[in-house]
């Protein structure tokens, strides 16, 4: 090599080395990054679908009502009418798919009720609450049917 760069051969080689490394990096990047990365934003679009694949535990009220329309009917007009079935009977997605596969929980007729209705100053004052004296340890269901508590015991 002649001319002004005659003594810069080592610098040119270093520069070539850097360019080479950069090209290798670009190839690696092209090979390893999913083709659709960044389609909707800075993430892998496949992650959207991956987030939808989880199996359900809770079937949702509509699935319950499909078969148990009688219960739905009995709750109409009650303060408990809008509570989801699985709030008390536990997650029932497997039951909804195959009624024999999973049995609904039948909650304890006193302890469970107190989970919501035990006296607690942090609860809204308008919400029905009972102190320890109320009903003297009798099951709540003696007087209040759980599906429509203000209508007396379950018939």
């Amino acid at each position: 090599m002649n001319g002004p760069l005659r003594h810069a051969r080592h610098l040119i080689r270093v520069a070539a080395l850097f360019v080479g490394l950069f090209v290798v990096f670009l190839f690696a990047k092209a090979a390893l990054v999913p083709k659709d990365f960044g389609l909707y934003g800075h993430y892998r679009p496949s992650a959207l679908a991956a987030n939808t694949t989880r199996e359900l535990s809770y079937a949702g009220r509509a699935a319950c009502v499909d078969c148990h329309s009688d219960v739905e009917e009995s709750r109409k007009g009650s303060k408990h009418a809008r509570i989801g079935c699985e709030a008390c009977h536990g997650p029932l997605a497997r039951h909804a798919a195959d009624p024999g596969a999973q049995a609904p929980v039948k909650p304890d007729p006193r302890a469970f009720c107190l989970g919501c209705h035990a006296q607690n100053v942090a609860r809204p004052a308008t919400f029905k609450q009972v102190d320890a004296e109320h009903a003297q340890g009798e099951p709540c269901s003696t007087c209040h049917g759980p599906h429509a508590p203000e209508k007396g015991p379950k018939p």
């Binding site: 005659r6 003594h7 810069a8 051969r9 080592h10 610098l11 080689r13 270093v14 080395l17």
Partner: peptide, 19 residues
């Protein structure tokens, strides 16, 4: 590490210094 260049003449070293 020399990258195959053993030019350590004054011109090359001057270049190194400036770089």
């Amino acid at each position: 590490l020399t990258l195959g260049v053993d030019d350590i003449g004054p011109e090359a070293l001057d270049l190194d210094d400036r770089a």
